[in-house]
Design a protein around this nucleic acid. Structure first.
Length: 481
RNA sequence: GUCCCCAUCGUCUAGCCAGGCCUAGGACUCCACCCUUUCAAGGUGGCGACACGGGUUCGAAUCCCGUUGGGGACACCA
């Protein structure tokens, strides 16, 4: 195992989001590729919004995706605690040291003071509206008997620069950085400070996160400097956007890993898909197993441009993974979905689900396909759609033969295998017609549609009784017109 | 508004760092044809992009500058 240590540090305020999942996945791949350590840290310092359910949801989402962690709140490890809130004493102590070293100071300004002064400066046409440094006069002084926050003394000039793992050199002018709060007046450390203390304590070497954190990085670098701690390498990966081009959020519908799971997306498919959002191996290959991804993943191939989540492609990819599944698993998926919609009872027998799955073939990309392609099974009223009517109108002779086809099917010894197909083709041949002349009208009669499953599969799925009934009904209706 | 990041088909992207091999390649979606006397699958083909303007250069998608556009951050949230 190398010295490389990376972490995924979500705050437990909801479901595991696909954006977070992808960040976790990149970190995981980076760690596994370089034989480093992948750490899970829960940033639960926002007590009001953090919940135990969210922590469980994060564990569950990551496990489902196959992202296992080497160290974390549940499995422990040599650099614990892994719950950010539990390291609070250490964080406070670090702030105390900064106070003593005159690298931080107590700030007695109230939020109202701050807001008032900021508004005044804004009105005065100033563009830099960060903290104005009023309490810098407190540097080195003992505490007064008033509530205070602790601010880090930030340099007034110079440049904060780092070589970003993902996008090269990034720099900020020091004067754009204010003396930010590291400990609130209620005694709790802020994110930018807690994360630094934690990352240092956990010996994190590479911080890979979303590029919405870019502006936090210079502040964190300042904190490392003040603490005289070596800063890790930073890498900022582009974010995932919704279809409207803004940051992906709940507004865009399904965005949690759980939601995709519930849609019927397979974990391997989501894993593969997410890996390809902001990363690419070459100009053609895009289907990878986890092992292959671990082997070929490198930071150099990370992209810089934000990407939009493409549900259609995800579903296509899911289909690829579905096709590779053993038939038993596909049957189980189909059965569960039919069950959940209370449609299982429309199927004639136990084996029907299996036959349906086989008839579906590669059309079976998502669980709902089982219903979308077989809706004719779940109703007794077939009303041909517009396309269907037009297609049927092209085959009047075929329609006229439908009653005879029905009779032949009725007299078949068994209604299975190739029997129905042979009967239909035999009849067509005797009458000197093409099989298609019977096939097309039969499809309309049985399903109401022009497209669909193989017609012989449709007959078997429907069962003899319903097939015959629909054939006759359609023919007499057509004759009546 | 200020700061930062980004800019190739509708979408995901390759190419850019080391300029010519790019009349820009692949994938998803859509369309057409072939195959199957049905439907998928499969095969073939098509639609479709270097944001714009200046440079640098014999030569720019690739390097530089600007403009425009998009995104993100501007908290005693994380």
């Amino acid at each position: 195992m190398s010295e490389l240590r990376v972490r995924f540090a979500p705050s437990p305020t909801g479901m595991l989001h696909v954006g977070g999942a992808r960040t976790a996945l990149f970190n995981w791949l980076h760690a596994r590729n370089r034989r480093g350590t992948f750490v899970l840290r829960i940033e639960d310092t926002d007590r009001a919004r953090s919940t135990e359910e969210s922590i469980q949801a994060i564990y569950e989402g990551m496990r489902w995706l196959g992202l296992d962690w080497d160290e974390g709140p549940d499995v422990g490890g040599p650099y614990g605690p892994y719950l950010q809130s539990e390291r609070r004493p250490e964080q406070i102590e670090a702030a105390q040291r900064l106070l003593e070293a005159a690298r931080a100071y107590r700030c007695y300004c109230t939020p109202e003071d701050l807001e008032r002064r900021r508004a005044a400066r804004l009105e005065g046409g100033e563009s830099q509206v960060g903290y104005d440094g009023t309490c810098r006069k407190e540097i080195g002084k003992p505490a007064r008997d008033e509530p205070f926050a602790i601010r880090l003394l930030a340099p007034d000039e110079g440049e904060i620069v780092w070589e970003d793992l993902c996008r090269g050199e990034i720099s900020f002018q020091a004067e754009t950085l204010e003396d930010f709060v590291i400990v609130r007046s209620d005694g709790s450390p802020t994110y930018n400070f807690a994360a630094v203390v934690d990352d240092a304590a956990m010996k994190i070497t590479d911080v890979l996160r979303g590029d919405d954190h870019i502006s936090n990085t210079p502040r964190q670098i300042l904190a490392y400097r003040a603490l005289e701690l070596p800063a890790p390498r930073f890498g900022h990966v582009p974010m995932i956007l919704g279809p409207d081009g803004t940051r992906l959020s709940k507004r865009h519908g399904a965005t949690s890993v759980t939601a995709y799971r519930e849609q019927g997306i397979l974990p391997d498919a989501l894993f593969n898909f997410l890996a390809l959002l902001g990363w690419a191996y070459d100009d053609s290959r895009e289907l990878f197993t986890r092992e292959e991804l671990i082997e070929v993943f490198t930071l150099e191939k990370l992209g810089k441009t934000p990407s939009t989540f493409n549900q259609e492609k995800l579903e296509w990819m899911n289909g690829v993974y579905m096709a590779a599944l053993p038939i038993e698993e596909k049957v189980a998926i189909a059965r569960a979905h039919l069950e959940s919609k209370d449609l299982l009872r429309h199927l004639p027998d136990e084996d029907a689900v299996r036959r349906l799955v086989e008839a579906l073939g590669e059309r079976f990309k998502m669980p709902h396909d089982v219903i979308d392609y077989a809706d004719f099974l779940f109703t007794d009223r077939i009303v041909p759609d517009e396309e269907g009517r037009q297609r049927a109108a092209q085959f009047p002779e075929g329609i006229a033969l439908l009653p005879e086809l029905a009779s032949r099917l009725e007299s078949l010894e068994r209604f299975e295998g190739e029997q129905a197909e042979e009967a239909l083709r035999g009849l067509a041949k005797e009458k000197g017609r093409k099989a298609g002349d019977l096939i097309h009208p039969s499809r309309i009669a049985l399903t109401g549609k022009k497209h669909g499953l193989s017609i012989f599969d449709v007959m078997l799925l429907l069962g003899r009784e319903r097939t015959i009934r629909r054939l006759r009904a359609f023919a007499s209706e057509a004759a009546g017109d």
